[in-house]
Design a protein around this nucleic acid. Sequence first.
DNA 1: CAGCATCCGAACCGATACTG
DNA 2: CAGTATCGGTTCGGATGCTG
Lengths: 131, 131
Amino acid sequence: MSEPLDPEMFDPVCPSSAMPIQIGDKWTAMVVLCLAGGPRRFTEIRVPLRGVTPKVLTQTLRAMERDGLVTRTAYAENPPRVEYELTPLGRSLLDLVAAARAWSREHLPALLAARAAHEDGAPVGAGRPEA
Amino acid sequence: MSEPLDPEMFDPVCPSSAMPIQIGDKWTAMVVLCLAGGPRRFTEIRVPLRGVTPKVLTQTLRAMERDGLVTRTAYAENPPRVEYELTPLGRSLLDLVAAARAWSREHLPALLAARAAHEDGAPVGAGRPEA
DNA sequence: CAGCATCCGAACCGATACTG
DNA sequence: CAGTATCGGTTCGGATGCTG
């Protein structure tokens, strides 16, 4: 599995940004998806997560490592190479992520419609229920 | 379904507080569970969510209402009575919540163990995902 | 009973700049 | 390449006190 990740794997325009389901931190679920096909390098993961800064991605990866979701393997080469890979525990999240995505495909439009309808009648500063 | 909710429905000691899965805001998933059995009143919902302030619960409920997950019915009585009930859309989250809980039952101990093991070797201020 | 108002602290995310 | 360091802004959740 060495095909490069699709840069548009996570379209920023996709309403999934408004998804009420979250796994770990903001990027955790996406990282899980990125690593679903096998080990990936730091920079490789950054591509589909357009806009994520190295600091934040490092935070996410470190947290996942702490929680036993990924393994980090550094090769003492030049240039340096580091690979992240899902552990069995991390892989166990794939089902959940899939379930969340299935829910979104099926019900997110209705949720978004309800939200839009409320914004019509309620011109109050609608809070963004995004975490 | 008028039996009072179990005050210990969500034990604060339960490691689910460390759960990496979140539906909506912090309390949304628990509210969904509270309303699974039928309509409930504001104060009734507060009981199992020990510690939640009315402000935050109102925020949660309002957001859920906006998103079409619950309906709010106020009865112009004295004393005032308000009931919240899951919509079909809100009920559609029950499967997802169940999936998340199933994952937790099965894998959360391993995650917590991994985290604890890391804290042994890394005495750095480990990010506590709990408030 | 069912909220609302106000203040506060913590968490998280992001931009920018710099290094082995 | 793979990070680290620093700074800042936004959001969220909680405590307290008051009202129709």
